[in-house]
């Protein structure tokens, strides 16, 4: 359904949806939770055999696959739990400090 949330910051008790409902699905995509991360998983495409263990085990659907092939990690939502790195049988994912990773990224740009 279409849900008009314009001006929601000013909603009063009788304007909010009953029972703290959200009247649409899939809103988690809009909620960027990746900045909670302390360590990030770094995926090595060369070592990856596309077993997709990480895809199965990730508790937050952040190991992204397409056509049965691993394509990358969703850093906007990954919280850095490290399960993917733990379950990978091929050492294709290693955890890296978020601070170092960001410094490295900035160096590249």
């Amino acid at each position: 359904m279409s849900w008009d949330i314009s001006g929601y910051e000013k909603w009063t008790w009788d304007e909010i949806p009953l029972g703290a409902m959200t009247l649409e699905g899939g809103t988690g995509v809009e909620h960027k939770t990746g900045d909670w991360r302390v360590k990030r998983p770094v995926w090595d495409k060369e070592k990856c055999k596309n077993c997709l263990f990480c895809w199965v085990y990730c508790p937050d659907n952040c190991c992204e696959a397409k056509d049965e092939t691993m394509v990358g990690i969703d850093y906007e939502h990954c919280k850095g739990c490290g399960v993917c790195a733990q379950v990978c049988p091929f050492d294709a994912i290693h955890m890296m400090g978020e601070k170092d990773a960001r410094a490295e990224e900035e160096g590249e740009h």
Binding site: G19, A20, M21, T22, L23, T27
Partner: peptide, 14 residues
């Protein structure tokens, strides 16, 4: 017509 119940309402957020 999907809905979620009892959504997160942290600091000052309803």
């Amino acid at each position: 017509d999907p809905v979620s119940y009892g959504m997160f309402a942290n600091l000052g957020n309803f």
